[in-house]
Amino acid sequence: MSLALQTFSSVKDANAALQAAGTRYLGGGTLVVRAANEGDVSTSSLVRVTDPGLSRIAVADGDVRLGASVTMAAIARHPELAALAPAARAVGGPAIRNMATVGGNLFAPAPYGDFAVALLALDATIVTEDGETPIEAFLASRDTSRAIITAVGFALPKVESFRFLKVSRVKPKGVSVLSIAVVLERTADGTVSSARIALGCMADRPIRAIAAEKALLGCKLAPGEIAPALAAAGEGVAPITDPIASAWYRAEVLPVHLGRLLLG
């Protein structure tokens, strides 16, 4: 058996083909082609879709809809998505960003998937032919997901309310020690009125720091006030251990980096 590529113009037809055993969806290729090159023979067929709608970026009335095939490079250079550019640029080097897609990033295991961390903080909706799923539910079940993602949708954050940090050993490109995305709403006097904090590398997939989110409510972004939130940042995390860093190290520096992101 060799590796065969099937090309479809519609997601519907591709979804049907994807039901066959040994078949995987080809997005940017950074995950599935790599696996094939490395001798993963469990995949014998790749399916791709040429529908240009999958590569469309739509921004209207404060809502963003990113086609699943939109690349990190396309996001990083889109003038209306400037707030998200730091998260998109955090993925790989220039060539990888020209290939890696929004859809693919949702499946990337830690320490990859930095953009998915941003999408989790943004409370994105994952769109398939079958309907829409909140990102948290999607991430929980992504290992068994078979339906092609067509788009993700979310409310466009204001530049000042979205913060993103990726910590890596190698600069400017290395993979994550951890990544943090925060969406904060603050009142006129600077008090946090709502917070969503998403973490990368703190589990095998992006997770929320719910205890820290709660502790942040009503705080101003000052060292003394955010201390309880930082202390709670590690609640419920199960950091990965990999060649980049150990679980111990990741857990130790999470509050440090969260603090710097909030105060920075």
């Binding site: 590529l5 082609v33 990888i96 020209n98």
Partner: peptide, 13 residues
């Protein structure tokens, strides 16, 4: 016009 990694790009595409 875009930088790409030929090792992860299938020729058919």
């Amino acid at each position: 016009g875009e930088l790409r990694l030929s090792c992860l790009t299938l020729a058919e595409t």
